[in-house]
Design a protein around this nucleic acid. Sequence first.
DNA 1: GTATTGTAAATTGGATCCAATATCCACTAG
DNA 2: CTAGTGGATATTGGATCCAATTTACAATAC
Lengths: 225, 225
Amino acid sequence: MMALKLKATNLGSMPSPADVIFEALREAIVEGELKDGETLRQDHIASLFNVSRIPVREALARLEEQGLVTTQRHKGAVVSSLSLEEIAEMFEFRALVEGEVIRHAVNVISDKTLAEAKAFAQAFAAEPDSGKWAGLNRLFHYTLYKDCGRPYHLQIISKALDKIARYLRAQLVLTHGIARARAEHEGILRAAMARDADEAAALTRAHILGASRSLIGFLQAQEKK
Amino acid sequence: MMALKLKATNLGSMPSPADVIFEALREAIVEGELKDGETLRQDHIASLFNVSRIPVREALARLEEQGLVTTQRHKGAVVSSLSLEEIAEMFEFRALVEGEVIRHAVNVISDKTLAEAKAFAQAFAAEPDSGKWAGLNRLFHYTLYKDCGRPYHLQIISKALDKIARYLRAQLVLTHGIARARAEHEGILRAAMARDADEAAALTRAHILGASRSLIGFLQAQEKK
DNA sequence: GTATTGTAAATTGGATCCAATATCCACTAG
DNA sequence: CTAGTGGATATTGGATCCAATTTACAATAC
């Protein structure tokens, strides 16, 4: 073996075109750029990325497995939409898992991570551009969770968030959720800094379930119109 | 519109070849017929099902998204294997979610469903063929959960089970888990019939975490050899 | 005018073909 | 004999081509 040192990037794990397309579509759905029920034409996507339809189809298959799109044989893929009941259930699920995760995290959380979380909370509170709220909100929470040593839990939370992020956005922007979120983030952060795991878990649960009630109420009112 | 009534099977939602292959591979992995680390050759699978590699690749993409196989660019797909830590985490996760689900289920469970669960518990206890234990075990628990009105939770549980079913099998068959499982099932069933949601949840959690300890101990001993 | 049939265009899903990469093994140099 | 090179083989990933199905719409019948 030669002794020459060079920073070798592992070509074998470079993202394939299919990966790139998957990520782009996922992002677009999560960010709400592709609306509920919108149909995704393989040809169109393929020409956007200058590839054939093959990698597009692979990306769509993976998105369907995640529940972000729904496919009907020979009819194509549409962005999945969730009913009110389904949205409510997702929030319940998040409250359960995120509550558990933050409890474990707070018991072992480092000062460095706490500082990061604090920075995100402040950035969130100070951000004037409503388009960036959802992202900062997610970063804040994720930072508080990430030391929990439970990668599978984190992955599941992330996938659940992907499915409802579009709706959450509405909750923050359209229901004045931002003001309450600021206050509740402060509380969660304080509990975490005090290493009070049960309090952090309880506040996180309440935070999620509160957002759920607010969003569901908003969507119900919306529906009646 | 004509009045003729006939039981119309919706052709549009018939399983595609890709669906069939996905299910078959999933089943084979879950049942342990395909071992950890075994590589899956696209050509081989394609000829087994008499199709080209295209639907096989779609199935593999979906399996990878589920975490049942791992792909490396240009090297192909292998059946994912879980470390001891990962297995332990999956059990923790199951205890959390299944505990929650059975609590909600027991509050609304029908007598009919209880009777079904009882039948599965008895079938499980009486089954001499160890190859069928895992399936009956899963049916018993699923039956107790299914009235909970939370389809997303059930789906997540199902996917989590898929990832560890191979290992669970070993726990039941090789560690005398079957005897304890019989007794614990009885307890869970009794709590459910008494509509004692908290007790059913606590017993379910204990059941899962007990199986986890037993399995992890077994695998650790195995590893040292 | 409305409902129904038939046909053309659009779209998906699969097969085949081709290029890029990895793996294996024989060969060579030292 | 060993390390290393080069090329044959196997395998994957993507492009192109083709068949099957859906959709839109024009033509026809009533």
